[in-house]
């Protein structure tokens, strides 16, 4: 396995952390960049654990200038960028009838615009390399569109469409673009009380929540050499919900 330079956004969260650890374990030579914005503690802790291979970098995914600066810093150090994992995301659930316009815009900006800006920021480098992997973390909400998530479901469905369209654009250049759709994954963002957890588990054929490491393994697979013929795909990781 050749050492690779990997940028993961939303790297302070449970899923981002698991993805970073998975790539750290994959090869002792992988260089991991943890894109972080407002919350830093976990990412900085991980960076301190592997200071030679893992660095935290300031990145507001909603701002093109922030992407430009982050990618420039990575290229200044490594002269290449092999994998982008667009993982940053957040949801603010509300019924559409009462959803504040700001909430709609905020969720679209973070979950969908952020992916657009990220792909645009790394593509010149990946095109010049004639090689690259982009993995977008979508959500089962993109496919099931639950009530109360019009903003989040629309944004994540947009990510799936972006993934497929971009995959076609860059396929012949050696760049793959894929998405994963995690279902219920046991992270801090899955804020549920005991009753909600019980109801959710009843809907999952495997009768358990997914672990962040199980999503991370799928991301690592889509980024590996053996997955070179997979592009424009959506991989559901949801314990069998459909």
């Amino acid at each position: 396995m050749n050492p690779r330079v990997i940028l993961i956004t939303g790297a302070n969260g449970g899923l981002g952390q698991a993805i970073a650890r998975s790539f750290l374990q994959e090869s002792a030579e992988n260089q991991i960049w943890l894109g972080i914005h407002t919350r830093l503690e976990q990412a900085e802790k991980l960076a301190k654990e592997s200071p030679d291979r893992c660095r935290a970098i300031a990145l507001d995914v909603t701002r093109p200038d922030s992407w430009k600066a982050a990618v420039a810093e990575i290229l200044a150090r490594h002269q290449r960028l092999d994998v982008l994992v667009n993982n940053a995301g957040h949801h603010e659930d509300a019924l559409l009838a009462t959803m504040p316009l700001d909430s709609w815009r905020r969720i679209l900006a973070l979950n969908l615009d952020g992916v657009f800006h990220g792909c645009q920021a790394v593509l010149p480098t990946m095109i010049a390399q004639r090689q690259g992997r982009i993995i977008n973390i979508a959500s089962l909400s993109a496919l099931l569109a639950p009530a109360g998530q019009t903003n989040y479901a629309a944004a994540k469905a947009g990510v799936l469409a972006l993934t497929q369209s971009l995959a076609k654009e860059v396929a012949r250049i050696g760049i793959t673009v894929n998405a994963v759709c995690p279902g219920y994954v046991d992270t801090a963002t899955l804020a549920m009380d005991e009753m909600e957890r019980k109801r959710a588990i009843e809907r999952i054929p495997m009768r358990r929540f997914g672990q962040p490491g199980e999503v991370a393994a799928a991301v690592r697979f889509l980024a590996c050499g053996e997955a070179g013929y997979i592009t424009g795909s959506t991989l559901k990781i949801d314990g069998g919900i459909f």
Binding site: P124, I127, A128, E169, V170, R172
Partner: peptide, 13 residues
């Protein structure tokens, strides 16, 4: 258009 995209990047590089 994809060729054009590659050409733009290559000419810059």
């Amino acid at each position: 258009s994809v060729d054009a995209l590659q050409l733009v990047v290559a000419l810059d590089k």
